[in-house]
Nucleic acid binder design. Structure first.
Lengths: 363, 363
DNA sequence: AAGATATGCTTAATCGATTAATAATAAAAA
DNA sequence: TTTTTATTATTAATCGATTAAGCATATCTT
């Protein structure tokens, strides 16, 4: 008899506040009077059945009575799979990323995966911390919005054969899975719109990082100018630091507006920049589109209340996020699959925020 | 020798695409030539040291060389703790909840916890699914924005001694940990503001659920009317269903505006309702505050662009979320601690959206 | 020098599952 | 009747850690 040992091991006697312990295969086995293995075969294999029908029924019955729920931690340890994916975004409280997170969550849930998330704040070291943290928790794969300088982290995943999909941004220096939009093309279209509506001196407010999506948006901007015979003025492009969005945007706008030849229009490279920028323009009493034309990236409740319907780049967030999850999980299931690279097309939604000297918005 | 067994177990030979395997205590033990236990003592206990200094140094050195990262899954199985908390919100893509999520994430990270999140969509069955899912993954505790009808789920946690903290909303029928705001009081203040600024016929748009926070907001509204000698008209209170926010809000506003005696003001019970409502008022060309006075709950980028600075209820999100995490983790550490119930004070931020027939906003 | 205490490391059980290998029994085939 | 095959359940290893208990040596006591 092991009564003493049992009563020590069993917390119920010791701590009165412990009511129910989770039931394990062991509990069921003891109750039914069979081995743990038999119970496992019945409950995991279902009908495969090297077990007699009566025994099988009995075990299932007891399992239900004891409200058995398998311990996923134990399963994970054995299988090496956690059915969990790590999602690293820049900031979960930014609507753009929150939206992505929601879609990822739903799509993952459909495929029976859980999501663990973390915000990198655009900082490589924070991102490193998250990746290590999640690796130790044995997530099966990652969906990552990479920050600047996160190349070695990605290499780390590569070295450890951990599947991952980059989203929103890609790292051109390596061949990864990614799902992004064609930033160059849609930026081109956005700026073309500004030109078509009669603007000639077009400023851009972007982030100062060297990430490819930002480069592409800038290159689209510059090519649009060039192809339409507008020679780019270096002072038109304002690079804002992540850490000082507000100050950066304000300084940039001040510069753009107060030069000898003020600009006609501004192209904002992200929603955050646009929100700050539009707030500041409001403060300066600069009116859209009368005093200045605007095109920005992404939508959001925020813009719904803006007095002037904005012309903006609408990203296919749903497709992007769903694709990312699907690609990731397919590669978790079969790591030998080739890398997938998707560049989706974004849409320019025409509002009323562009109208230069030459003509009004044709909407 | 176990060469054959080893080469079978080791995937490197089998699948060429597998490059590095995570190093385990076993690998270090083999490399150094000691038992796994010794390695474990050195790496987990640090300086406690029943192990000689030289051996200890050697083990640490090899551990670093092999880039050892402990397997948290294995640790969890042994310890019964995952250092993970489950966060269940209504919808992570709603800025209100995304904001909470971000603060929870940061606070949890400080205390060395990971966050797994899920969106319930205000549906009890979805919430049930999430709770079971996360229970099976052995999260150490929950932070929950409870949906209507989720009482049995909470009971389930209670039965299984799983610590949890309700946030934003509480369930009055049971004694749980919770962190909420004093909804009655701040709703009272909000409506009082409408009355003080000269409004008499004051409508409210709320959700149709029976959750306590909603009841409290409604009771605050009614008491404010009553205490100021305004007799409440049943048709002033519009209850909107979660599933049909847009339609509900529009129908409600139509009713409020088109009766024989149209209302002067609307009190919106949440940010989502306010966003929909204000959009619709815009569409109807009803101007704030000239045609109608408004007070709403919560802030957000959205309202920053609204043409009229809104008077709104500002919830102490940071305190609320941080408190929730702290309470939860303290109870994970010591389940015998008494339940904690916090009702924080919210602030009414005065904008320019209230001005009735009697007087203008005194701002 | 005999027994007592320290020191330093190993053995083995454990967490809760999975699963290959095997044993025991019954039924079918020779 | 003996051998083969099916059926049904068990044993034991495993995943990667932790940790109580045990076993050698070495060092102190007196």
């Amino acid at each position: 008899m092991q009564v003493a040992a049992n009563s020590t091991a069993n917390p119920i006697g010791k701590y009165s506040f412990m009511k129910k312990k989770k039931t394990s295969l062991k509990d069921i086995a003891k109750e039914v009077g069979v081995s743990i293995a038999t119970v496992s075969y019945v409950l995991s294999k279902g009908a495969n059945s090297r077990v007699s029908v009566e025994m099988s029924e009995k075990i299932k019955k007891v399992a239900k009575e004891l409200n058995y729920q398998p311990n996923q931690i134990a399963k994970s340890l054995k299988s090496g799979k956690t059915h969990t994916i790590g999602l690293i975004v820049a900031d979960i409280s930014n609507p753009f990323f929150a939206h992505i997170a929601r879609i990822v969550e739903d799509e993952a849930a459909k495929l029976d995966y859980t999501v663990i998330f973390g915000s990198s704040d655009e900082k490589a070291d924070k991102s490193w911390g998250l990746i290590k943290f999640l690796m130790n928790r044995q997530v099966d794969g990652f969906i990552i919005v990479p920050s600047e300088g996160s190349n070695d982290q990605i290499q780390y995943l590569e070295d450890h054969n951990k599947p991952y999909v980059l989203i929103d941004r890609r790292l051109p220096e390596r061949e990864s899975n990614y799902v992004v939009i064609d930033n160059h093309e849609v930026a081109y279209q956005a700026v073309k719109r500004l030109i078509d509506t009669g603007n000639e001196r077009i400023g851009m407010i972007a982030y100062s990082n060297g990430l490819q999506h930002m480069r592409d948006r800038v290159s689209g901007y510059r090519m649009a100018l060039q192809n339409h015979g507008i020679s780019f003025d270096n002072s038109w492009l304002k690079a804002v630091n992540f850490d000082q969005v507000k100050e950066g945007v304000r300084a940039g706008i001040d510069d753009l507006l107060n030069g000898p030849k003020p600009i006609d229009a501004i192209f904002f490279a992200t929603n955050t920049l646009a929100v700050e920028g539009l707030k500041y323009l409001d403060k300066l009493n600069v009116r859209v589109p009368d005093d200045i034309s605007i095109v920005c990236f992404d939508q959001g409740d925020a813009f719904d209340f803006y007095y002037c319907p904005l012309t903006y780049v609408k990203q296919p967030l749903v497709t992007m996020s769903e694709e990312a999850v699907r690609i990731l999980i397919s590669q978790i299931d079969d790591p030998s699959l080739p890398k997938v690279q998707k560049s989706l097309q974004a849409e320019l939604v025409i509002g009323k925020s562009c109208s230069g000297r030459l003509m009004a918005d044709k909407n």
